[in-house]
């Protein structure tokens, strides 16, 4: 009897101990997790999201000769709050053809760059993905190596080639293909060539990682069912690589719209790209409110593709997690 009572007490104690421990466990874990979440989350809220609110605020401000060079939206005078919303920057942007042309020119340049990168990048990504496994890694590394080297260096490399006194003109002249040097530098063409050069790896990498997953047996099955190679490419490979095409295109298009360095170094002074306009408003004209307004319009333009890309990537990651 005594023994039974004792053992009963023991087991009760054990159960109580277990309950206490589990409570501690359940309390401790979420706390650790929220800490882990809070650090990067807080960083991004503070340094990425919050700044956009300031950009928005300052875009409604007016330029002032002061430090910082804009008028505060909210002022206190005679114990009353004055809020001065200035829409002038935006009406200016939509009214002045300079800005409109710059936006349009940037979008067009980015779109053409994306298209050319796709046309060049697809065969390359496809070839590397279909290459024997031993060679695949080396080939991919060779494609990506320029991406690792400095962006500025890559742009600079083209300056020597495209210069009006540059190598390409020298070559063409010595081959007697032309009589006088061509104006290659500081043209739309030079911007276009360098843009494609700089952004090509961003297209190839997502295309490759998509195509490499494509099951080669699908193509064998298509061939077995009497499909000609080019037709099985159109009906099997291309549709299945849709996600890679979209991801690559977005990764090229979105940052290309706001490109500054390339139009600055090899572009024409007349046809501006919006990234350069923003830079000039900020650094040369010291017109911060205008630069902010230009930014807001650019973000508004790019928000849809960015969110679209993000949703697609999340979906494919969720699929990967399931397998």
């Amino acid at each position: 009897m005594m023994n039974r009572l004792l053992s009963l007490r023991d087991s009760r104690e054990a159960a109580a101990r277990g309950a206490r421990r589990s409570l501690r466990w359940q309390r401790a874990l979420p706390r650790g997790r929220s800490l882990v979440t809070a650090v990067p989350y807080g960083w991004l809220l503070l340094f990425f999201l919050l700044p956009f609110l300031f950009v928005l605020q300052i875009s409604f401000s007016e330029v002032e000769i002061a430090s910082p060079p804009y008028r505060a939206l909210v002022t206190r005078a005679e114990d009353a709050l004055h809020i001065a919303l200035n829409l002038g920057n935006f009406t200016y942007i939509f009214g002045d053809p300079l800005y409109f042309d710059a936006y349009l020119g940037s979008l067009r340049m980015a779109a053409v760059t994306t298209l050319i990168c796709l046309l060049i990048g697809y065969p390359v990504a496809y070839t590397i993905a279909r290459a024997p496994e031993a060679k695949r890694n080396t080939l991919l590394m060779l494609v990506m190596l320029p991406f690792w080297t400095s962006f500025l260096v890559r742009v600079y490399a083209w300056m020597g080639i495209l210069d009006n006194e540059g190598l390409l003109n020298h070559l063409l002249l010595s081959l007697k293909l032309i009589d006088a040097p061509l104006a290659l530098m500081h043209t739309q063409l030079s911007v276009q060539v360098v843009m494609v050069y700089a952004y090509l790896p961003f297209m190839i990498l997502p295309l490759f990682s998509n195509l490499v997953k494509l099951d080669g047996r699908l193509l064998e099955a298509a061939a077995d069912l009497g499909c000609k190679p080019w037709k099985s490419f159109l009906t099997v490979t291309l549709p299945l690589s849709k996600n890679g095409v979209i991801a690559g295109s977005m990764l090229v298009f979105i940052p290309a719209v706001g490109e500054f360095v390339i139009p600055e170094l090899v572009g024409t002074p007349e046809s501006l790209m919006i990234g350069k306009v923003l830079w000039m408003e900020f650094f040369d004209n010291n017109n911060w409110p205008m630069a902010a307004a230009v930014t807001i319009v650019m973000v508004a333009l790019l928000l849809v593709p960015i969110v679209y890309l993000h949703k697609r990537e999340e979906k494919s990651l969720a699929r990967a997690a399931k397998h």
Binding site: P51, I254, P255, G258, E259, F260, G275, L278, A292
Partner: peptide
Amino acid sequence: VMPEVITGLSMLL
């Protein structure tokens, strides 16, 4: 993907 001019300007502000 955000163009760097945007990130740069907004952080500066």
